[in-house]
Amino acid sequence: MAEVIVKTDQVVKEYRMGNNVVKALNGVNLEIYQGEYLSLMGPSGSGKSTLFNMIGALDRPTKGSVFIDGQNTSGLTTSQIAWLRCHKIGYIFQSYNLLHVMTALENVTLPMIFAGLSVKERNKKGEELLELVGLDDRIYHLPDELSGGQRQRVAVARALANDPNIVLADEPTANLDMIIGREIITLIKRLNQEKNVTVISATHDLKMLDVSDRIVDIRDGVVERIRNRDEIELEVGEVTGH
């Protein structure tokens, strides 16, 4: 198999709420390969978003380590972490998280500003990315002037701004209807194949099953099982009846 791009080693995340301690993750060991499409599945509250935050260096684990490209993220300076988020990882959220004062193009080019690209470079690249996600006629629209599906497309384009190795998506289709949700999944899958980016997606959405190379089932903060593509295909047949 391809090389390991993300590795979690006994990752534990506890949240303290007054005297209570919630163990959102309880020792997660996972190896994720460059270029694969990996889905994190599990019931609500099982720890998917928490794991998403750990892998994306958006929060620190209580115990254990996350390695990205062989680097232990807990040893990085804040500047290196910012660089990592800027260059290595693209994020897609359930609620899009676009900056609503910025146009589609400005949203997509914001990470490029942080990467130091010139105005010309980033506008060119931003337009290309928006074209790639099928929004070339909406580049000067504000998020409020776009539909949910279109906003998520902008978010997908933004996630690809600095050619990351990894795209992390936390329930990217949860706010969308069936058809639009499927379009977004197809889009992410296409980019996964065309650009060879690793996709890690937390989801409840069974539509995600047939595009995933592997599915990781999370339950109560631990990895319950990992299924491969061939095992999945059998089950998809059962679920959707084709």
Partner: peptide, 16 residues
């Protein structure tokens, strides 16, 4: 494309 940054982690730049 996707793999151009493999292996090293840089320092984030300061913006003007």
């Amino acid at each position: 494309m996707a793999n151009q940054n493999r292996g090293t982690i840089g320092q984030q730049i300061e913006l003007p």
